[in-house]
């Protein structure tokens, strides 16, 4: 009797815990929608998404609320980060799981994971004093605060996630796959690249998407290192201002319940939708590959 009640209670407790996550997520979504809806009474959705000008505090011309350049900026900084972090991350993971000895791995993996604990403001500072001047010197440009700087820093921030989870995925590949490949006369390189990485692909993609999620939402680093110019970037060497940076800069001083205030929430909503789509796509890809392997 008592055991039964206890079981029921424990069951309810865990159910509640699970529900809380969903309630919080829906709550955040509801707040974002309700706070950003009033913005669209004064701005058309088309202007908001596609007009190139963002200047809500304009006094000499009409205020404008176009976020196109910010969306492009966020995308190129994140994609740049992905292009740097993915090969490095998967390479490191393959090294740790297949090449490195036991002791090297036991030291290297925790060290890489510590990298994830460095506060983003510190990374941003490194972007100003270290990466920025280096970029300026290499490309012979006058200033290194640009999209490339942001991409490099975000890649560094995403690396621990990608390395750690990819390594887990590679180690999770059944030993028999490796043995079969080696027995057929494949070299170790061929085994890693053609057998193990494809077999672990779903895990690697999941790891990459988690890293990417951090990159898209990262604020302080890009605020400090990308130069924050609202012009449409023409290359990786132009200064950009991401959506997160705009919210961080402007939300502190915006008068409440104005179009500008609601527009900032609308940027937040757009960001939420973008990350949601990224996660959805990752999920679909993941399931597809899992089925292939089975």
């Amino acid at each position: 009797m008592w055991t039964k009640i206890r079981e029921r209670l424990i069951h309810t407790f865990f159910l509640c815990n699970g529900m809380i996550v969903i309630v919080v997520l829906l709550g955040i979504f509801a707040i974002l929608v309700s706070k950003s809806a009033p913005a669209f009474r004064e701005i058309s959705i088309k202007d908001f998404m596609f007009s190139p000008q963002w200047n809500p505090t304009a006094t000499y011309v009409a205020p404008s609320y176009g976020i196109r350049t910010m969306i492009v900026s966020t995308c190129i900084v994140s994609l740049g980060a992905l292009c740097i972090a993915l090969p490095l991350g998967v390479g490191t993971a393959a090294y740790l799981s297949d090449v490195a000895g036991q002791r090297t791995r036991e030291i290297a993996k925790p060290v890489i994971e510590i990298l994830a604990g460095i506060p983003s403001v510190v990374i941003g500072f490194l972007g100003i004093v270290l990466v920025g001047p280096a970029i300026a010197g290499i490309f012979h440009i006058s200033n290194g605060l640009n999209a490339l700087n942001g991409s490099i820093l975000l890649a560094v921030m995403a690396l621990p996630t990608i390395v750690s989870l990819s390594e887990d995925a590679l180690r999770g590949v059944p030993k028999s796959f490796e043995e079969a490949s080696l027995a057929l006369g494949a070299t170790r390189w061929q085994t890693v690249v053609r057998v193990k990485i494809p077999a672990a692909l779903s895990g690697i993609i999941a790891a990459t998407m988690l890293g990417m999620g951090r990159a898209i939402g990262e604020t302080m680093t890009v605020l400090m290192a990308t130069g924050c110019a609202l012009a449409m970037p023409k290359s990786f060497l132009d200064s950009v201002q991401t959506m997160t940076a705009t919210i961080a800069i402007e939300l502190g001083e915006v008068p409440y319940d104005t179009t500008h205030y609601y527009a900032l929430f609308a940027i937040g909503l757009t960001l939420f939708i973008i990350t949601f789509i990224v996660n959805m796509v990752a999920d679909i890809v993941l399931h597809k590959y899992q089925r292939v392997i089975k």
Binding site: Y60, N143, L223, G227, C228, A229, Q241, I249
Partner: peptide, 19 residues
Amino acid sequence: GEYVSTLKSMNGNAQIVEA
């Protein structure tokens, strides 16, 4: 008048001096 959009917005006086 309004700022041109190529303006790089710095975090404070000291960051402008550094740049």
